[in-house]
């Protein structure tokens, strides 16, 4: 698909990425930036903490009730090990690239070519999270014992340095995190004003609208109802001033009405004659 320069520049602004599917279709994903991923990470952290506390309580209760607390602690330690290193990896494997936190924020891990990830990639990218925390600052100066404060510098800097906001673990595994949103279908704008349809019928019969102009028309008319009349006039003036002389229409024609008429002509009414019949 040929894209013009303006489309390319809005692309880099919108942080989307193109993906080609096995059906030979190219479609775009919105990449997830740090402001979605960090909250999702904290949700996961909180969930892990809750599970950890619940298990701890269960272990101490079972130890008090039945005895055999040592076995319970052993199981708890194993769970802790699994949760510390494999929580994200296992969830992303079995929940199609999502952890609970990612699910809440509508994120999903995919391979950079848009294909789903496999178990190995999911586990590896989560083990390498350890590197994201570096460099560690020792707190020994403050008598905090062997505790170290993770500065997370690598985790913050690495995503800034590549186009897909990949962490080090993502770079190693060739994965990326995308936003998966449900959008509501946008119907065509409804223009009930008879004057607009009349104007549309008066437009030249051989009129063809370029792709670029039709995009601009659709964007304007679909948002028009959120704008006040004065604002509409202000925005429509830019196009109207150029289009009116081109279409040989009198300067008294309302700019907003002209754009709506062009919209009707491009997207809604099949031909000038049918449009007249419709009105």
């Amino acid at each position: 698909m040929v894209r013009d320069a303006s489309a390319a520049s809005t692309k880099s602004l919108d942080s989307t990425i193109d993906v080609v599917t096995p059906e030979n279709i190219s479609f775009e994903y919105e990449l997830a930036g740090p402001f979605r991923r960090i909250p999702a990470y904290f949700i996961d952290l909180a969930i892990r903490l809750v599970i950890w506390v619940v298990l701890l309580i269960a272990v101490s209760l079972s130890g008090m009730a039945v005895g055999g607390g040592e076995l319970a602690i052993a199981i708890w330690l194993l769970c802790w090990f699994v949760m510390e290193w494999f929580y994200g990896g296992l969830l992303e494997t079995y929940f199609n690239g999502q952890t609970f936190g990612k699910r809440m924020f509508g994120l999903r891990v995919l391979r950079t070519d848009g294909q789903p990830i496999n178990g190995l990639q999911a586990v590896m990218r989560n083990i390498l999270r350890f590197v994201d925390m570096m460099p560690l600052i020792s707190l020994q100066e403050f008598e905090a014992g062997p505790l170290a404060l993770p500065t997370c510098m690598f985790g913050l800097l690495a995503p800034m340095m590549n186009r897909r906001y990949q962490r080090l673990g993502d770079l190693v595994c060739g994965t990326m995190v995308v936003v998966e949103e449900r959008r509501w279908a946008v119907a065509m704008a409804r223009l009930d004003d008879a004057a607009i349809h009349r104007l549309a019928a008066e437009l030249p019969g051989n009129l063809t609208v370029s792709h670029k102009l039709s995009r601009a028309l659709a964007t304007y008319v679909e948002r028009r109802r959120y704008l006040s009349p004065l604002r509409r006039a202000e925005i429509a003036k830019h196009l109207g001033d150029i289009l009116l002389p081109q279409l040989k229409l009198p300067t008294s024609v309302d700019h907003d009405g002209l754009l709506c008429a062009l919209y009707v002509r491009t997207f809604v009414a099949p031909t000038a004659r049918e449009a007249t019949a419709h009105v």
Partner: peptide, 19 residues
């Protein structure tokens, strides 16, 4: 709208492979 819809359907059709 179509980009997002196709993206979501793609992710449901091609799911992560387990171990």
């Amino acid at each position: 709208y179509l980009h997002r819809l196709v993206g979501r359907a793609h992710n449901q059709l091609y799911r992560s492979r387990t171990f």
